[in-house]
Simulated assay, not measured.
Amino acid sequence: MKKFGAFLLAGVLAIGALTGCGSTDKKAESSTGSTDTQVIKVAASATPHAEILEEAKPLLAKEGYDLQVTVFDDYVQPNEVVDSGDFDANYFQHAPYMEQFNKEKGTKLVDAGDIHYEPFGIYPGTKKSLDEIADGDEIAVPNDTTNEARALLLLQDNGLIKLKDGAGLTATVNDIAENPHNIKIVELEAAQVARVTGETAFVVLNGNYALQAGYSVKKDALAYEASDSEAAKTYVNIIAVKEGNEDSDAIKVLVKVLKSDDIKKFIDEKYDGAVIAFE
């Protein structure tokens, strides 16, 4: 899932055909005329969502389902095509974005399954260990509301600051209640944070920007969000469906496969901690 504010982006044409109607009640005919395979159409972002779905295809085939994935490069159409019934599900977003989209657009989408999260991590800058923190050190964080709050919560979880009670996922620098090291929080556009590692003691990055900067979350992060953290639970990426379809057999099988040990292993090996299967 990308940033929470992405719902403001204008829709861009999807990659792939958008015709047809809801497909989980239809059969896909083989070359022999057989209609034993049920089709599931899923709209997805390219990375990592579509890549994970591609890995799931043979597993779903064994269950009797033909998973058809269409990649979209915007955050509007994947929800619209599911709400309209053209697609059975999408995989690209977290629940807060979906709920805001429902509110803004009048759609009726629900969470059918929690699949993965992309953790924030604290990475070395001019210092290589959190134990080296000193009075007046600078730490760079993203400046947009959602990502800054996650960064501050991670700093709090690691004992560097303490936030006001109740600040949670809306926290800003104004909510810092205790700052024993007089840390200066440097607020930057998310894509710029990784560029100041030579200027600040530490930087706080989300998974995709860490990958772009050449970091391995598992090897390089000094600390990162745990699966039971408030942020991970809130911003877990989901399978979203139209309300009423969450209990269909096809969707249940899709979620079961995406939460299987085989897919968890694929996620762990391919993304090296930048994407983590949600337990």
Rank of each mutant, 00 (worst) to 15 (best):
L8S: 09
V12N: 11
L13H: 13
A14Y: 01
G16D: 10
L18C: 02
S23C: 08
K26L: 14
A28W: 11
E29Y: 12
G33H: 09
V39G: 04
V42A: 01
S45E: 07
A46L: 13
P48S: 10
P48R: 05
E55I: 00
A61S: 07
K62G: 14
E63T: 05
Y65D: 04
V69M: 08
V71F: 04
V71Y: 10
D83H: 10
D83N: 11
F87I: 14
F87D: 07
N90E: 15
F101L: 11
F101C: 03
K103V: 09
K103Q: 15
K105G: 00
K105Q: 12
L109Q: 12
V110T: 15
A112S: 07
D114I: 01
F120E: 05
G121P: 01
I122Q: 09
Y123K: 01
Y123D: 01
T126W: 04
S129G: 02
D131H: 10
I133L: 11
I133F: 01
G136C: 02
I139L: 00
N143D: 15
D144Y: 13
E148R: 15
L169M: 04
L169T: 06
T172A: 00
I176Y: 13
A177D: 11
N179C: 02
N182P: 11
I185H: 00
V193E: 06
V196S: 05
A201G: 02
V204M: 06
L205D: 05
G207Y: 12
L211C: 05
K218L: 14
E225P: 04
S229I: 03
K242I: 10
K242T: 10
G244V: 09
S248K: 14
I251N: 08
I267A: 03
E269L: 14
D272V: 00
V275I: 12
